[in-house]
């Protein structure tokens, strides 16, 4: 069914696809680094860094995304373990609660979330941005699935060796959930560092603003002030790191994406 890749039409189609999806990004990178007088320049990049606190935005993004990944992983592993290995009254209700977290996106209850964070006096803080996302239903389901696949015999053997529940969890279960945890990490990091609307409405100064919101503001400013080279350079600042990471681990990252919903 798959067409042989040596067929000339296939080669043509692949070339067309590469140009459509690759060229606009390459053009922006070219515009960033090409001097108007010919040759290579870092001038646009320096100007973009001077025009907005991108370093601050980047630090904020790392703290928000990293903090969320840590919290979601801890909660996901603990809840996933309990749901995978214990039976207790109300289990299906509690499982349903974590499913609800997946089914109802933050965008669907945006104004209420805003009012809660406002009520906690956490507007314009990194914690305020993180609060609605601290528990991830996808993490819970990923870990539950990974833990269910652990053979009972391993747990029994470890218990005979004298491990208590915490020891069994740390030594038997957690090491076997590493692939699931890594796949979840790719999903979580990608989702949260690209998130726009929620951090946009929660923040109003640079102190908590993540880089994507900062970038959108450069776009607004460039449309009014016609500072187009700044727009290209600011976009380059944001996409170069992720493109480097992606180019160095292309196939691994693509597999993680494909397993996004593979519980």
């Amino acid at each position: 069914m798959a067409v042989s890749r040596r067929h000339p039409l296939t080669v043509l189609a692949l070339g067309f696809v590469a140009v459509i999806w690759g060229f606009p990004t390459l053009w922006v990178l070219y515009a960033t680094f090409a001097s108007p007088r010919g040759g290579f320049t870092l001038g646009n990049l320096a100007e973009a860094f001077a025009s907005a606190p991108f370093a601050q935005y980047a630090v904020n993004t790392v703290l928000i995304v990293g903090g969320l990944l840590i919290m979601q992983t801890i909660f996901g592993a603990l809840v996933g373990f309990v749901l995978a290995r214990y039976d207790f009254p109300g289990k299906s209700l509690i499982t349903g609660l974590f499913l609800l977290q997946i089914v109802v996106p933050v965008y669907a209850i945006l104004i209420q979330e805003y009012e809660i964070v406002q009520g906690l006096h956490m507007l314009n803080t990194k914690t305020g941005i993180m609060l609605p996302y601290l528990v991830s239903g996808i993490a819970v389901l990923s870990f539950r699935q990974a833990f269910r696949a652990v053979p009972r015999e391993l747990e029994e053997a470890a218990r005979l060796d004298g491990y208590d529940t915490i020891g069994v969890f740390l030594r038997v279960y957690l090491p076997r959930a590493v692939p699931a945890a890594l796949a979840f990490a790719v999903i979580s990091v990608t989702y949260h560092w690209t998130d726009f609307l929620w951090p946009l409405i929660v923040t109003n100064t640079a102190s908590a603003r993540p880089i994507v919101v900062g970038l959108a503001m450069v776009a607004e400013a460039s449309e009014s002030g016609l500072q187009w080279n700044l727009l290209a350079a600011a976009t380059a600042i944001v996409i170069i790191p992720v493109l480097v990471v992606f180019a160095s681990g292309t196939r691994r990252i693509l597999s993680a994406f494909a397993s996004t919903f593979d519980w």
Binding site: T25, L26, L243
Partner: peptide, 13 residues
Amino acid sequence: VSVFSPTVMPMIA
């Protein structure tokens, strides 16, 4: 990398 670069970048970018 070229086909999936839009997948890994933010919609804003």
